[in-house]
């Protein structure tokens, strides 16, 4: 489908706001599924937006704990992938997804430039402070917001104006095994999110619960909401069990927590 001017402007603004919001107001940080859904709504295909967004969301889990330029910028990946999947419109999201991730790997390098730029902003702020020019000092802080907006918006403009042609050119010369490989990869890629997340979890202590979750999904066929509820109830009981001692004898609260933690570690 053709992206019209209004749609293009809306998506570019959304990309700019997302980039600025990510580091400042954080109204929807890391909510890649939301961003893709919104792009889908703007382009008139909310469903594709949700499917792409969901996949990117699962890929990105755990990336919040990394920060900086050590992981692709998944928000950019998701929005690019949604635009390309809907614009090329062949129903297969895997090509858009791969191009989106590639774009996001390049995009995240801009993070380093942002931090260098911020060093200059800091110098500006500090010199205004030394000169006691406080209104100018307070205004200078917003140089960072403006830069971030442009950092999000400009690459998205490039994607919108050249992305579709580029992807169609790739599709035209691409052998069948490559397309097939990309859709296999699209099925596997969410694994990076889970694996990354697990590295932040106390797996030594709580690995049995990973198996409980697996059994509930694989053998009992439960969906994610009832599983989350069940696990939530186990967590509540665990918390009650381990805080009983704490409230009864507040003077040894720290010790009790340490002992119970130690016991679990040994098991």
């Amino acid at each position: 489908m053709e992206i019209n001017a209004i749609q293009a402007v809306l998506i570019i603004i959304l990309a700019g706001i997302r980039a600025a919001d990510m580091y400042s107001t954080q109204l929807f940080p890391f909510m890649h599924a939301l961003m893709c859904w919104l792009v889908g709504i703007i382009l008139g295909d909310a469903y594709t937006g949700l499917v792409v967004g969901g996949t990117i969301q699962l890929m990105s889990m755990g990336a919040a704990g990394l920060g900086g330029s050590s992981a692709p910028d998944y928000g950019m990946a998701g929005m690019t992938a949604t635009v390309l999947a809907i614009a090329t419109g062949n129903g297969d999201i895997s090509v858009g997804l791969t191009v989106g991730v590639a774009v996001a790997m390049l995009y995240v390098q801009l993070d380093v430039i942002f931090k260098i730029y911020n060093s200059w902003v800091f110098k500006t702020i500090r010199s205004f402070c030394e000169k006691e020019n406080y209104p100018a000092m307070l205004r200078s802080f917003f140089l960072s917001h403006i830069y971030l907006f442009l950092q999000g918006a400009l690459p998205m403009a490039i994607v919108i104006f050249f992305g579709q042609t580029a992807v169609e050119a790739i599709l035209a010369i691409m052998p069948a095994w490559f397309t097939q490989g990309l859709s296999v990869a699209a099925g596997i890629l969410p694994v990076t999110g889970f694996a990354m997340l697990l590295t932040f979890m106390p797996l030594k202590k709580s690995w049995p619960f990973a198996i409980i979750g697996y059994v509930a999904a694989a053998y009992l066929g439960l969906t994610v909401l009832p599983i989350a509820l069940l696990a939530g109830m186990i967590a509540v009981e665990y918390f009650k069990l381990h805080t009983q001692g704490l409230s009864a004898a507040p003077s040894v609260a720290g010790d009790a927590a340490q002992i119970s933690g130690g016991e679990l570690e040994d098991e």
Binding site: L203, F209, I212, G213, Y214, V224, I227, A228, A231
Partner: peptide, 8 residues
């Protein structure tokens, strides 16, 4: 961890 186990 339970939710991750089911989602894998």
């Amino acid at each position: 961890v339970t939710v991750v186990g089911s989602l894998i």
